[in-house]
């Protein structure tokens, strides 16, 4: 999902753009709504399956929730560093932007590492897409689909952030490009808030 910041100059001369933001930010928000609805679809399916299966394993016993909390902590911190990078980009001091962008990329990679670690742990315990040892037959499938798709978005986010970092290192990235990458990253963190609560805690 490559976001080209250097798009065509806005040739809106019909007075004030209705939302007071450039078209690229408006399009980013619409993309976030559309992509968010894919996750809304997955969560609706997960809700349907929870209601349709007689029992559901007790997640606090099978997941060590402090590790999941650490994952959430990492993602929220990377979100905060991203917000700082965006604010710095708006102010124009490129050194801070670069530093916080790299911190965000680091946070993203750490989250992916922890996710991979958790996956291998569960797979070693016998959980798979088709079956899992904790009762409800679709628990494994729901877990791997939800966290897998979120993970793929985190991965694409890390790639986008790495490219933005390289471009800002070479002085090509405009403030708007960093802001769009930031919007996407915060969106990925927002989805994790929903998955973390609805899957692990409720």
């Amino acid at each position: 999902m490559e976001i080209t910041a250097a798009a065509q100059p806005a040739n809106w001369d019909g007075g004030v753009s209705p939302f007071g933001i450039g078209w690229s930010k408006l399009m980013m928000w619409l993309f976030i709504v559309s992509d968010g609805l894919v996750f809304a679809g997955f969560l609706a399916i997960y809700g349907f399956i929870r209601l349709a299966s007689p029992d559901w394993p007790d997640r606090s016993r099978m997941f060590h929730l402090d590790f999941i909390a650490l994952m959430t902590f990492t993602l929220i911190s990377s979100s905060a560093t991203m917000a700082t990078a965006v604010a710095a980009a708006r102010e124009g001091n490129r050194k801070t932007v670069l530093r916080f962008l790299l911190l965000t990329v680091l946070g993203g990679c750490a989250f992916l590492g922890m996710q991979a670690y958790e996956w291998t742990g569960l797979i070693r315990e016998g959980a798979g897409l088709g079956s899992n040892p904790w009762g409800a037959p679709l628990f494994g499938a729901c877990f791997f689909v939800l966290t897998g798709f979120h993970g793929s978005h985190v991965l694409s986010g890390v790639i986008v952030l790495a490219m933005t970092a390289v471009r800002s290192r070479m002085g090509m990235a405009r403030a708007e490009g960093v802001e769009l990458a930031g919007l996407y990253w915060h969106f990925v963190d927002l989805v994790w808030v929903f998955i973390f609560t609805l899957f692990y805690l409720i």
Binding site: W12, P18, F19, W23, M27, F31, S34
Partner: peptide, 17 residues
Amino acid sequence: TMGGLNFVTTILDQRTK
């Protein structure tokens, strides 16, 4: 989705004076 994003953004943002 790509086409839809373009349509909605253009209609909202790129209308002439």
